[in-house]
Amino acid sequence: MQEAQLDFYRRLAHALALQFGSGCEVVVHDLETKDPSHSIVAIENGHVTGRKVGDGPSHVVLEALHAGEHTLEDRPAYLTKTADGKTLKSSTVFIRDERGRAVGIFALNFDITVLRAAGDLIGELVGTEPSAPHEPEPIVRSVADLLDDLIEQSVQLVGTPVALMTKEEKVRAIRYLNDTGAFLITKSGPKVCKYFGISKYTLYSYLDEARSGEKDA
Rank of each mutant, 00 (worst) to 15 (best):
E3S: 05
Q5P: 02
L6H: 00
F8M: 02
Y9N: 00
R10P: 06
R10V: 13
R11G: 07
A15W: 10
Q19I: 07
S22D: 09
S22R: 12
C24W: 06
V26N: 01
V26E: 05
H29W: 07
T33A: 00
T33Q: 02
D35C: 09
S37V: 06
S39H: 00
V41Y: 00
G46E: 00
V48F: 05
R51Q: 11
D55P: 00
H59L: 03
H59N: 09
E63F: 02
E69V: 14
L72R: 01
E73I: 15
R75N: 04
T80S: 14
T82E: 05
T82L: 07
A83I: 15
A83Y: 11
D84Q: 06
G85F: 14
G85K: 14
K89D: 06
S91M: 10
V93L: 09
I95R: 02
R96I: 03
D97F: 04
A102G: 00
A102Q: 00
G104M: 01
I105L: 11
F106I: 02
L108Q: 04
N109T: 09
F110T: 12
D111I: 08
R116Y: 04
A118P: 02
V126L: 12
A132D: 15
H134E: 11
E135V: 09
S142Y: 15
V143F: 15
A144P: 05
A144Y: 15
A144Q: 15
D148E: 10
E152R: 14
L157C: 05
P161F: 12
P161A: 08
M165E: 03
M165A: 03
M165G: 04
E168K: 10
R172M: 12
A182D: 14
F183P: 02
I185Y: 07
S188M: 14
S188E: 14
S188R: 07
P190N: 11
V192K: 04
F196N: 02
Y204K: 07
S205N: 13
A210R: 05
S212C: 06
A217K: 11
